[in-house]
């Protein structure tokens, strides 16, 4: 894998820079001119709302009652961190993230291997695999909701037939925590596994075929080749795929919103933040929750990049 790049190893420690040449200075100025507008827009559309959310999170502020807006500093945060609902949502979010990312990694890798090996019909196969990912999440959530519901669904009917009647044909999938979470995760996995497999396919494609052949000649079995040659060589691609999916899964919203709206203790952090901000128009509390969610996502990214040394630039 191309984690070994041409960047000089001393780049970060190089504090005493020599004076820039005219050309370097001109290039830097040109760079700012080219990238500057985009940089300013980025600041306007990301930094500004984030800072405003942080500011608003210090207030008790209800949109329908703007007159009683009150500065309460960290009170919203203390409510959040003492409320069992927050920990329930956090646990649900972590649970969904861990399960879906793990399943997607295994499934996605299998599909990537398949796509990598199969020569014909390569393009058709890759297109088919991508179909779930191209479907809007809300739409796929409704599709899964309707197929599992007791009145419109077919899943119960199938399970009932396949188990020769042992399965209760009127089982309410959304009536309790575990089955509801199960359907939410199935929908999530079905939808985003293609994304995972594409990222992994890119990693697979970068492995030098000669290494695998050499291992084969030396008598390595399939599993030995997989664990000793293939996986170590695509570690960066795997980590990037897992990072992207983890950040994505941690913000899960659509499936929960469409299927349960947080009923039966299936609340996640995003739906909780949505409820405070949009439903209750409690802008202060909602902002505080969003800030907490942001910090958690930020921490995950930091752990991956620092802890596992994921090189985002090198694995493109």
């Amino acid at each position: 894998m191309s984690t070994v790049t041409d960047t000089p190893p001393t780049r970060r420690r190089d504090q005493h820079r020599p004076k820039l040449s005219d050309r370097a200075r001109a290039e830097r100025a040109l760079g700012w001119k080219l990238a500057g507008p985009a940089f300013v827009i980025m600041l306007a559309v990301t930094a500004y709302p984030i800072l405003q959310a942080v500011w608003l999170s210090f207030f008790r502020y209800r949109l329908t009652d703007p007159d009683s807006r009150e500065f309460i500093f960290l009170s919203n945060y203390s409510v959040i961190f003492t409320d069992p609902l927050f920990y329930q949502a956090l646990w649900n979010t972590v649970f969904i993230t861990v399960v879906t990312v793990a399943v997607e990694l295994v499934l996605g890798f299998a599909i990537a291997m398949l796509m990598h090996r199969i020569v014909l019909p390569r393009r058709t196969l890759r297109t088919i695999v991508l179909i779930p990912y191209s479907i809007i999440t809300v739409v796929s959530a409704f599709a899964w909701l309707y197929s599992f519901r007791t009145d419109t669904g077919y899943v119960n009917g199938w399970l009932n037939t396949l188990t020769f009647g042992a399965w209760d044909a009127s089982f309410d999938w959304f009536g309790s925590w575990l089955p509801a979470m199960g359907v939410i995760m199935i929908s999530e996995i079905w939808k985003t596994t293609p994304f995972m497999s594409l990222l992994l396919l890119a990693g697979l494609a970068q492995i030098d075929g000669a290494m695998e052949e050499a291992a084969k000649v030396d008598g390595a079995t399939f599993w030995q080749r997989l664990f000793k040659v293939v996986l170590p060589n695509m570690k960066a691609a795997i980590m990037v795929a897992v990072l992207f999916r983890t950040l994505d899964a941690f913000r899960i919203f659509d499936n929960v919103f469409v299927m349960t709206r947080g009923a039966n203790n299936t609340e996640t952090l995003s739906t909780l933040a949505y409820k405070q901000t949009i439903d209750r128009v409690e802008i202060g509390m909602g902002s505080a929750l969003s800030v907490v969610l942001f910090l958690l996502v930020f921490a995950i990214a930091l752990i991956f990049i620092r802890g596992f040394k994921v090189d985002l630039a090198g694995s493109k």
């Binding site: 007791t150 009145d151 009127s170 089982f171 309410d172 959304f174 009536g175 009923a263 039966n264």
Partner: peptide, 11 residues
Amino acid sequence: GPSMGTSDETV
């Protein structure tokens, strides 16, 4: 009904 806990007008 089997799905009382999730029943709305339509169900």
